[in-house]
């Protein structure tokens, strides 16, 4: 009897007391929170606006030139008379593909093997620390200095060629590939390696058959991003590749050209027709970079989802 009366008293007391109001009251703290949110939104807009503006400008001015009569712009030769209006950036596209392709063939195997050594074999010895430090330094070297380095070492001796340009580009790509591959190798869980060792597999075979396939999507996407960056580099190519105007499918002989060189040369020209071609070439380069990045993302997502 006494407990029932007490619980009745307690529940009566609970319903009698006012429920506290938990809605936010306007105060200085909530106002500060709103201000900070507004500032962050403004910062995001400030960063996104230049990107949108650049893409819009390139699309608006390059679309008419590049897609007027569809394959013409990408196949025809660059007019030797710069004043003449009309299409043609074919040699530049071939040059960019040649130079970037050869640079990838040099930089990606070297970078992946270097990162495998840095992570698997020489984990913290002095040589690895030196190589990592040098890689960091090399990633901060300005591209024009790299171009002049290749000029002094290669072009003065062997003349202009597409291969000199790919040497310069591979020097620029190498630190990026090493860094991203090492990050990916660190992400491979160690128990995979230990399981392979427990089965009696030698270290090199473990790396080849267990570690590298596990890290492959990250390595591929990192390398593709390095390729996308290298495709747009202009300054190193100015000193190593030269500026030819015809198709030159040879890697080692004679001056070649590239999209970035053509953009620079035509943009500073005084003829409107040449400037239009520069806009078209800029659109082509943006599309090329976009396609490479897209392939990298799709590849990563596809392999990740399959696992």
């Amino acid at each position: 009897m006494m407990e029932l009366a007490e619980t009745a008293d307690i529940s009566a007391a609970a319903t009698a007391a006012p429920i506290p109001d938990l809605t936010a009251k306007p105060s200085w703290r909530s106002a500060k929170s709103t201000i900070m949110t507004g500032l962050m939104v403004a910062s995001v807009l400030a960063v996104a606006l230049p990107l949108i503006a650049v893409v819009w400008a390139v699309l608006a001015r390059g679309f008419a030139v590049a897609f007027k009569s569809f394959p013409d712009f990408f196949i025809q030769e660059i007019p030797t008379v710069a004043r003449r209006a009309g299409p043609g950036m074919g040699p530049a596209i071939l040059g960019t593909l040649l130079v970037t392709g050869a640079a990838t063939l040099i930089a990606v195997p070297l970078g992946v093997l270097g990162a495998v050594y840095l992570h698997e074999y020489g984990l913290n010895n002095r040589f690895s620390k030196l190589v990592r430090f040098m890689s960091t330094v090399m990633s901060g070297v300005p591209s024009i200095v790299m171009g002049l380095f290749i000029y002094v070492l290669w072009t003065l001796r062997f003349g202009y060629s597409a291969f000199g340009g790919s040497l310069a580009l591979s020097c620029l790509m190498l630190p990026v590939v090493i860094g991203s591959t090492e990050q990916m190798l660190k992400l491979v869980p160690h128990h995979l390696r230990e399981a392979a060792y427990a089965l009696g597999v030698s270290k090199s075979r473990t790396i080849l058959t267990v570690v590298l396939p596990a890290a492959l999507p990250g390595i591929v996407s990192g390398s593709l991003l390095a390729v996308a960056r290298a495709a747009g580099e202009t300054a190193p190519l100015l000193f190593a590749v030269g500026a030819a105007n015809e198709y030159n499918p040879h890697l080692f002989e004679q001056a070649n050209t590239a999209l970035s060189i053509q953009i620079f040369g035509n943009a500073t020209s005084s003829f409107v027709a040449a400037q239009d071609r520069a806009w078209g070439a800029a659109l082509t380069l943006v599309l090329l970079t976009f396609v490479i990045t897209l392939v990298a993302r799709v590849f990563t997502a596809h392999i990740a989802s399959r696992r």
Binding site: S139, G140, V141, P142, S143, I144, V145, T234, A235, S260, F264
Partner: peptide, 11 residues
């Protein structure tokens, strides 16, 4: 590092 890259920005 971005500052280093920006200092070398050529074109």
């Amino acid at each position: 590092l971005g500052l280093g890259r920006a200092m070398g920005e050529t074109i």
